[in-house]
Amino acid sequence: MIGPGIKRGTAELAVLSVLEDGPLHGYELARRIEQQTKGALRFTLAALYPMLYRMEQRGWIRGSWETSQQGRRRRCYRLTAAGKTKLSPLRKEWSELFSALRRLTKVSHA
């Protein structure tokens, strides 16, 4: 079973990685993550916003209100310098974890 710590870590990595490509509002961010992971990672509203607000408090992302061409007001999130700094070691950490798991799985199947 995947614990809440692992889940939170993957979710934060997913958000930071997607925002690296450019600012997005919450709904689009959730959709983008779902599309890019082919549905493996899905965020409901209840899971997404507490995490976005937490990340904003930590200074990794910054939200600002923008008005779309259709006149709809939405809060767009962009990666901050602190977020960019956080992303690099986070990627390394997860890459190491996945490599370790891959190695372990091979050993287990041998």
């Binding site: 409901t44 509203l45 209840a46 916003y49 507490p50 995490m51 607000y53 937490r54 408090q57």
Partner: peptide
């Protein structure tokens, strides 16, 4: 999408 609004309310307050 929201099973428990009270819980969401708590989580948002805690996060903000």
């Amino acid at each position: 999408q929201v099973e428990d609004w009270q819980k969401l309310s708590r989580l948002i307050r805690k996060a903000r």
